[in-house]
Nucleic acid binder design. Structure first.
Length: 417
RNA sequence: GUGGGCGUAGCUCAGUCGGUUAGAGCGUCAGGUUGUGGCCCUGAAGGCCGGGGGUUCGAAUCCCCUCGUUCACCCCA
């Protein structure tokens, strides 16, 4: 074991996986850019107060933040998510609404690491601030859905729910608390602790012993106001109109406190895994106001990059693949010709690599093969003296030819096309 | 944060009733004659057996601690 390794829950992303990450973000960019979303790049570090507004009762804020006091005595935190940052940016810059933005980048949560759960983890997401329209919720959900489809994922389940308007939610939470307290002896000790902090979250318990009590708990739908009911119906109608399959899950409560009305989650195919939530989001109409801005409705989602790629692996789609070069230059005369020829090729837009340390012909040819290049350009002492180069196809047979160096680029363009 | 599994070469893993110089495959490097890759053959390099302590004549192997990882709870993406 080396003396220094990555900190727990942090890791290096190496080729070719790193290229897959870039393609992932590029694919997301293309999906949402086509719907009029622009990229916002918020800082990794914010005043800790920005995140406190996300939810005083959530573990994300109370236990898992990477926070510290900086040299200027400011209490700051590495962002645990980006929705709060986007809303803070909105309040600070007051762009015209509807403000449709997307983001991609790392977030930090001090949790015990697990497969698909890291302390530094990347998310992509979108947020729309301004419009209060259930069809916007549908657009947002549909863009996430389209993204998964573009990646090639076929086993994603969309779960939707509505938490109702704030008053509905408050009434529901009160009813829940009353119900669970009346049945507290049937709850697991862990759920009793959860109950004292946030009764909603008890619904999310995955412990089998809690299943019975939860099954007969009050139902959120019974507390929906007329407005909430109409909004939720419009969302479901919109999803049907787009032929997006969904499952209404009344126990879907989500982890952050700011959600109201529509909430949704994309669940991966491997349902036996505890880390099967690929992404999720919802409407958060109070967050901008909480951050000191004008009352502004908002809706959005975040998708976990790691988990989604794990789901891709499970389904055998969106695989990583090695990136090669077009041409590999072999030079057995010391390497100066390889230096100038690769430079010349790159300038002409032909990707090229070479070997170093003046290795043997055999060794350099092996390297050429491994490089993935479809053509080798070989320069030995004869070619160097004659001002020529050998062009040797590496993949699909074909004879090698000796040509003047001046014709190298035109010849290669022909061979590569 | 709580509980269980695991931790041996760069990678994937053998090896434990404790017993001489710790193995394989893949990968890397070098050869297999005269300047040419993929297949094959030969050889080489590469391990404080995660770290520390203990038991023992002797520990990769047993015990304790610790770190890391993984699974479940929790949390959530």
């Amino acid at each position: 074991m080396p003396e220094f390794q990555t900190s727990p829950g942090m890791r290096d992303v190496l080729p070719p996986e790193s290229a897959r990450w870039r393609r992932f973000v590029r694919t997301f960019d293309e999906t949402v850019s086509a719907a009029g979303y622009g990229q916002v790049v918020p800082p990794l570090l914010e005043d800790i107060g920005v995140f406190h507004r996300v939810g005083e009762a959530t573990d994300v804020v109370t236990k898992e933040m990477y926070d510290f006091v900086d040299k200027g005595e400011r209490h700051v935190a590495l962002r645990p998510e980006q929705t709060a940052s986007v809303c803070r940016a909105f309040v600070q810059h007051r762009p015209a609404t509807p403000w449709k933005v997307w983001y991609a980048g790392p977030n930090f949560r001090y949790e015990k690491p697990q497969r698909g759960r890291y302390r530094q983890f990347d998310q992509v997401g979108i947020e729309v601030l301004g419009p209060d329209d259930p069809y916007l919720d549908v657009e947002v959900i549909a863009l996430g859905w389209r993204f998964f489809r573009t990646l090639g994922l076929g086993q994603v389940t969309l779960m939707v729910n509505s938490l109702g308007e704030p008053a509905d939610r408050t009434a529901f939470v009160a009813a829940l608390r009353e119900y669970f307290e009346a049945n507290i002896d049937r709850l697991t000790p862990e759920s009793r602790v959860t109950l004292s902090k946030n009764p909603l979250r008890v619904l999310d318990s995955k412990r089998p012993a809690d299943a019975d009590v939860i099954a007969s708990a009050p139902r959120i739908a019974d507390f929906h106001s007329e407005t909430a009911r109409a909004s939720f119906a419009a969302v479901l109608d919109g999803l049907r109109a787009l032929d997006i399959p969904f499952v209404v899950n009344e126990r879907l409560v989500r982890g952050l406190d700011y959600y109201r009305l529509t909430t949704f989650e994309y669940v991966g195919g491997t349902l036996d895994s505890a880390q099967n939530a690929l992404g999720g989001g919802g409407r958060y109409d109070g967050l901008v106001e909480d951050l000191g801005g004008p009352a502004t409705p908002g809706v959005g989602f975040a998708i976990g990059l790691d988990r989604t790629l794990l789901a891709c692996d499970d389904e055998g789609v969106f695989a990583a693949h090695e990136q090669g070069v077009d041409v590999f230059v072999v030079d057995t005369t010391g390497g100066l010709h390889a230096l100038t020829v690769t430079d010349q090729l790159r300038a002409a837009g032909i990707s090229a690599d070479r070997a170093f340390e003046n290795r043997s012909m055999k060794s350099q040819m092996k390297a050429a093969d491994r490089s993935g290049a479809s053509v080798a350009v070989i320069i030995g002492s004869d070619e160097a003296a004659a001002g020529t180069a050998v062009v040797r196809p590496l993949r699909d047979g074909g004879e090698q030819t000796s040509i003047p160096r001046t014709e190298l680029i035109t010849t290669l363009r022909k061979v590569l096309s």
